[in-house]
């Protein structure tokens, strides 16, 4: 009872950029930091410490160099935790995994975030609008509250 209410009322979100093109990053920053969208009024607060976080927002395709870091960061977050993959690159790897000329698609990226860590929410768009990000974050909070 208190558990669900408290989880609904205070959520910490952590951002990890895994090497995307910045487009999603700035829209996430817009959603989190700009007074226009202001994620904090929905009881979601920004943190940079994995130990404090509940939701891990990942943008960009996971590059090979970022893969171990992302895994470690995910492991550092105590349960219950959710992962939101923001943007097409974070979902399926975007153009880097799916487009290619003579040499095929890029082998510098592992692919979407779900190839590295389990993902709970997918927010498509290139980049998604801040409104979409707000809506998605607001809609995963009940899932977080319902966890063990």
């Amino acid at each position: 009872m208190l558990k669900e209410i408290s989880r609904k009322n205070a959520v910490h979100i952590m951002l990890v950029y895994t090497g995307g093109c910045n487009g999603c990053d700035i829209e996430v920053v817009n959603a989190v930091m700009s007074p226009f969208y202001d994620l904090e009024q929905y009881k979601v607060m920004l943190t940079w410490n994995p130990r404090e976080a509940d939701i891990l927002a990942v943008t960009g395709p996971v590059t090979r160099k970022m893969e171990p870091a992302l895994k470690e960061i995910y492991a550092a977050i105590p349960e219950p935790k959710l992962v939101a993959a923001i943007g097409t690159c974070a979902i399926i790897g975007g153009p880097y995994a799916n487009l290619g000329g003579d040499l095929g698609s890029s082998d510098q990226i592992v692919g979407g975030v779900n190839k590295v860590i389990p993902v709970d929410a997918y927010i498509p768009g290139c980049p998604p609008r801040p409104e979409d990000i707000l809506q998605a974050v607001a809609s995963v909070i009940p899932i977080l509250a319902g966890k063990r």
């Binding site: 090497g19 995307g20 590059t63 000329g101 040499l103 698609s105 890029s106 082998d107 990226i109």
Partner: peptide, 13 residues
């Protein structure tokens, strides 16, 4: 860390 090989996938496109 953000290397994605974009010049390479553009080869032949």
């Amino acid at each position: 860390t953000a290397h994605r090989g974009i010049e390479r996938i553009m080869e032949g496109m």
